[in-house]
């Protein structure tokens, strides 16, 4: 039994204690009427996060792994900002804390070598979606009354059923992490996308650029020559099996049967790009366009529908209900009286 526990990446007891601590911290940090022990709750939740980090780190040292410090910085930043987001009573601050979460998780994306998605996340989420949220928060908030500028709306000032909801959420977390920490799945060391032969079939232009640069440098090709390419189909004449390329001086090349315009050049073995690495953007682009082309179609239709829907909804004329009308009338009347007095 003990050896089975020692094999796990974190002691289960420690995990559950951290979950309970975190739950109590979140409950305390929830906004409520009167004095709320928010700071204490935040500290408690941070302590829970620290416990988990401690458990994970001690395991890692035992297995001679030194986890990247960046992971812990970004992970704790993301979770801390997320906690602050769900507990902050003011919507504007909640949205700003969510931007912090986004930035921290884009740091995690960078650690996972998903560079394109990291920057797309910042541009699209933090730059576009969250700004839309901020606009709506500004649009849909009642103006503060004169006597108390910091007054919160009642629905912001107190949470609904904090204890039950936190219990449910942390039960989910405990169950999921129990399954999660059954064993460790170490991430493989990245070895690039494919060999150059595989890249040749997908990204011939990349191999062509690489080869023609090195062939020009080694003067196996004269400056006015280039690697032959059939313009209409875009096929490059690179024979990966026999390690040779067709070199041409003309513009359109149909094939090796064009006599004096073309000649085969044998590529020396050390010049052949054996371990070519596709960049992240190339990989994502190829995957999106070649393997999942339907994704773009569906995404386009969804965005079109959202655009139409938002337009229809925004154009609709809304009548205030009786109660709200009366409230607004009272508000206006008070303003008039105030102006008269003033």
């Amino acid at each position: 039994m003990n050896t089975a526990i020692a094999e796990l990446p974190i002691n289960p007891l420690l995990l559950y204690v951290a979950c309970v601590l975190g739950a109590i911290g979140v409950i305390l940090a929830m906004p409520r009427k009167g004095v709320s022990p928010m700071v204490f709750g935040g500290l408690l939740a941070a302590a829970a996060g620290g416990l988990i980090v401690l458990g994970l780190t001690s395991h890692a040292e035992r297995h001679a792994q030194t986890p990247s410090i960046f992971f812990y910085i970004f992970g704790l930043l993301a979770l801390g900002a997320g906690l602050r987001m769900i507990t902050h009573p003011k919507p504007v601050y909640a949205a700003l804390y969510f931007i912090l979460t986004i930035i921290a998780s884009s740091g995690l994306y960078l650690l996972l070598s998903a560079e394109f998605m990291a920057f797309a996340l910042i541009i699209i989420y933090a730059g576009a979606i969250l700004i839309t949220y901020l606009f709506v928060i500004m649009l849909a908030t009642l103006p503060p009354s004169e006597d108390d500028m910091d007054a919160l709306a009642t629905y912001d000032a107190s949470a609904r059923e904090p204890i039950v909801a936190t219990f449910a959420g942390f039960t989910l977390l405990a169950v999921l992490t129990t399954m999660l920490f059954r064993g460790t799945l170490s991430l493989p060391v990245r070895h690039g996308m494919d060999s150059s032969d595989a890249i040749l079939s997908k990204l011939p232009g990349k191999v062509e650029d690489n080869l023609s640069a090195s062939l020009h440098a080694a003067e196996l090709m004269t400056p006015e020559e280039h690697i032959a390419r059939q313009v209409d189909v875009g096929r490059v004449w690179i024979d990966s099996a026999r390690r040779r390329v067709l070199v041409s001086r003309g513009e359109n090349t149909a094939g090796p049967d064009q006599g004096e315009l073309v000649r085969w050049v044998d590529v020396p073995a050390e010049m052949w790009p054996a371990d070519m690495v596709g960049t992240n953007v190339e990989g994502v682009g190829l995957n999106l366009l070649a393997d999942h082309p339907m994704t773009i179609e569906i995404a386009g239709v969804i965005l079109l529908m959202a655009m139409l829907g938002a337009t229809v909804l925004a154009r609709k004329q809304v009548d205030l209900e009786e109660e709200a009308k009366a409230r607004q009338a009272r508000h206006l009347a008070l303003d008039v009286v105030a102006e008269d007095v003033g």
Partner: peptide, 13 residues
């Protein structure tokens, strides 16, 4: 570059 972190770390976050 990540050989040292496990998948579980990220899944936990």
């Amino acid at each position: 570059p990540m050989g040292v972190l496990t998948l579980n770390h990220y899944l936990f976050v």
